[in-house]
Each structure stands twice: as structure tokens, then as C-alpha cells.
């Protein structure tokens, strides 16, 4: 069975007068371990879709079944638990806590996880090492380059060993070289560690790191196909 399945998913925003249909009856399935890119121009509904898939928002119609259970059936505590344990997020603008060290930033998801505190340092360090930033443990975000910040964010996303990692325009704020490095790491996470990856991007170049591309336009799926010539990064991950 697919890890994630959406069926006739709808999302309508109600303004004072107008109702905007951002997602119109979207359906697809994502099996565990797949690397999917969701593409589309701005306003296509791709961010809204990611928010729903990532348990950050709720649909106004249709179904979303994650790990065999309908989103509607998760209570508040369980939603927080899923976000913490099963999902990891990488944002375009990094969203690291300012004036807080790399190590502390990466430990953040652990503080809500119920994992014993004695293990936090070890787990966080391991995650930071895997993105090649072991020498930056005590740095604060303001002392890091954009690419390094995003790698810290990746370390934070994978510290709880989630099933799915969501990446929302992860290269959007980076120069092409740092962007490539970040995509290399994300691809490695999928290939070597089996994390399911949902990537949101509007660049074809970036999307081709994935094995499957879902194209959205005006809230409907325009195409859903396998990537024929997949881009592969240099082996980076240790």
C-alpha cells in the first residue's frame, strides 16, 4: 500500500466575497521510498499541497491517507507527533533559530520527541556530520553561508529519522553551486537511507534530481510522469 494517498483533494480559501479554489480534486499516490518533485508556477497550488501532505494544513474536501490512516482521524496530539517523528521539513528560507548554535538548532525536533535527553547530543552530531558540517557545531546561523544554513536545516529535518522529508524550494535562496550540493545531499538521503522525499520547485533543473515529477497548474494535475534522464549528484554523503 502507498505511504501517502490523496483522493479528490480540495482546498478552497474563503475571502469576504470570493472563494478561491486552490486545489481542485487532486488525486495521486506516493509509495514509500519514492523521490517526487512537485512542480508548477506560482499560484498553481503546489505549496498548499505540500502543507496538507506535511500535516501543516487541512484540506476542505477529499481524503488524505497517510500511513494507512485518514488525516481527519488524527487528533491534535497525533498530528504534532507525526510532524515530529515521521516528517521532516526543509524550507526555502531555512528557518533556523537566530542566536542559537548549529547543534542547538538541530536538537530542536528532539526536544519535542520524547527521546532521552542524554542521546540528543549524539543524534544531533551524527546528523550534522552527515551533511558535512561537523566543524560548524558551535556556529550561529549568522556566521554561516546560505548553503551551510540549508545543510543545517537538512540535518534538523533528518535528526528524528523521519519517513518523509518535505523540501519546499530548498535551493530558492541559494547560488547554483550551493544549490547543487544541497540537492546532492537530498538525493543521497533518498537513495542511501530510503527517506521518501517530496520536493517542491519551479525549476526543471532541480526537479530532475527526483524520479517522478507531478506538474500542477491552476490546482489540477497537468502531468505525472517518471523522469527519463535523472540528474545524479556526486557521491557526497558519508
Amino acid at each position: 500500500m502507498a505511504l501517502m494517498a490523496v483522493k479528490n483533494l480540495e482546498k478552497t480559501y474563503h475571502d469576504e466575497q470570493v472563494a478561491t479554489n486552490v486545489l481542485k480534486k487532486v488525486s495521486f499516490e506516493i509509495p514509500e521510498g519514492q523521490f517526487v518533485a512537485i512542480m508548477g508556477p506560482s499560484g498553481s497550488g503546489k505549496s498548499t499541497l505540500l502543507h496538507i501532505l506535511g500535516f501543516l494544513d487541512k484540506p476542505t474536501g477529499g481524503e488524505y491517507i497517510f500511513d494507512g490512516k485518514n488525516l481527519e482521524d488524527y487528533n491534535e496530539e497525533e498530528v504534532a507527533h507525526v510532524r515530529n517523528k515521521k516528517l521532516g521539513f526543509i524550507f526555502q528560507s531555512f528557518n533556523l533559530l537566530p542566536r542559537t548554535t548549529v547543534l542547538e538548532n538541530v536538537k530542536l525536533p528532539l526536544t519535542y520527541s520524547g527521546v532521552k535527553e542524554e542521546l540528543w547530543d549524539e543524534m544531533a552530531k551524527e546528523a550534522i556530520e552527515s551533511v558535512g558540517l561537523a566543524h560548524r557545531l558551535d556556529f550561529e546561523p549568522s556566521q554561516l553561508s546560505g548553503g551551510e544554513k540549508q545543510r543545517v536545516a537538512i540535518a534538523r529535518a533528518l535528526v528524528n529519522k523521519p519517513q518523509v522529508i518535505f523540501a519546499d524550494e530548498p535551493t530558492g535562496n541559494l547560488d547554483s553551486k550551493s544549490g547543487e550540493l544541497v540537492m546532492d545531499i537530498i538525493q543521497k538521503l533518498n537513495r542511501d537511507r530510503g527517506h521518501t522525499i517530496i520536493l517542491i520547485t519551479h525549476e526543471t533543473y532541480t526537479a530532475e534530481y527526483a524520479e517522478r515529477i507531478i506538474r500542477l497548474r491552476d490546482g489540477v494535475i497537468e502531468s505525472d510522469e517518471k523522469v527519463k534522464e535523472r540528474r545524479t549528484g556526486k557521491a557526497f554523503l558519508k
Partner: peptide, 16 residues
């Protein structure tokens, strides 16, 4: 606000 949103996205409950 951003910090709060981030904490929630990373698994913080309302109670946290």
C-alpha cells in the same frame, strides 16, 4: 511568530 510556526512544524504541541 516564525519561531512558533517552526516549533509547531517540528512537532511542538499547543501545550508545549
Amino acid at each position: 511568530t516564525r519561531e512558533i510556526g517552526l516549533r509547531k512544524a517540528l512537532g511542538a504541541t499547543k501545550k508545549n
